[in-house]
Design a protein around this nucleic acid. Structure first.
Lengths: 160, 160
DNA sequence: GGTTAATGGTATAGTTCATAACGATTATCA
DNA sequence: TGATAATCGTTATGAACTATACCATTAACC
């Protein structure tokens, strides 16, 4: 039984064939978003025992590096809008990872500090990130590429 | 009038000084997200005359490269959930950029096609992306780095 | 034929992101 | 000093995006 001899148009995909993403692969924004989703997903998996999201981890890290700052300063540095930062802090404070304290010098603002539990959690989180998450990325990319990638992303965030 | 001679603790930031993001700069996920937000922002600016979001542009591009596919196939390829794809298509169809057509072979599914206006809009969009958006990225990174960056992001999306 | 599975679509809820406005407090300055 | 403006954290609210369960129709298969 012969197959019907019929032209197969170039631009018509064969049934059951994966689609052509075409120029999408060259779109940096598309590739950035895809990669970012993957990386965040792995971050959440690695951080599951501590139940910290990427945003929460970044807050804890920033508080540790900059103790005594207020909410506006921390939120601005992370690109979080002040109103949206309130609920984030509520969650961290209710887990006793950080504290709000009225500033004696300016009683409008809250001085933010990590608690002991917050520092301990951050230490464990850093270890998980380094040994599980970032280590796998370095393994996939190679150390040199990993460093180059970080540099280029910083360039985009800074100069673009 | 002397300044009070008091130690300035290393980890207490000076008033009015920008904060230390510290290890955050080495977190690939953080850098990825920051860069992605910048790139999407620029994409929207460059595409303002055509009023296309990155997601909408990716749909038009995919339809052009894969005519005759149904909603599930297009949505899956772009990582969009089928329910969320409905409103997206409604918006594009109401602007006469693409059409849904019941498939004669499977009357449940919709065959998706670009309209003439959709193809024309996509052509203009591609030109804007290439000449305004991607061109500036290449200028900032350098052509070799730009290509290397795309390769690494693809590696992460594929192998990570 | 009758069961099972797949289709596009709806409804819905959760999450993130953005803006406006408020009370309390502090700064500015005439 | 007193009036005005600015800043702090916060609330309320809505837009946008994401995720799950479900429905009616149609197809596939035994």
């Amino acid at each position: 039984m012969d197959l019907p001899l019929r032209a197969l148009p170039e631009d018509t995909a064969v049934e059951g064939t994966s689609l052509q993403i075409g120029e999408l692969a060259g779109l940096l924004g598309y590739s950035l978003k895809r990669a970012q989703l993957r990386v965040f997903d792995d971050f959440l998996r690695c951080m599951a025992p501590l139940q910290l999201t990427p945003a929460q981890f970044s807050v804890l890290l920033l508080l540790d590096n900059n103790p005594g700052r207020n909410q506006t300063e921390i939120a601005n540095t992370l690109g979080i809008l002040r109103p949206n930062f309130v609920a984030m802090l509520d969650a961290l404070e209710s887990r006793d990872l950080c504290t709000r304290m009225r500033s004696p010098s300016d009683r409008r603002s809250h001085v933010l500090m990590l608690t002991d539990k917050g520092r301990a959690t951050l230490a464990r989180a850093k270890k998980l990130v380094t040994t599980k998450h970032e280590a796998r990325l370095i393994e996939v990319l190679g150390p040199a590429n990993h460093a180059a990638l970080l540099g280029m992303l910083a360039t985009i965030a800074r100069d673009f």
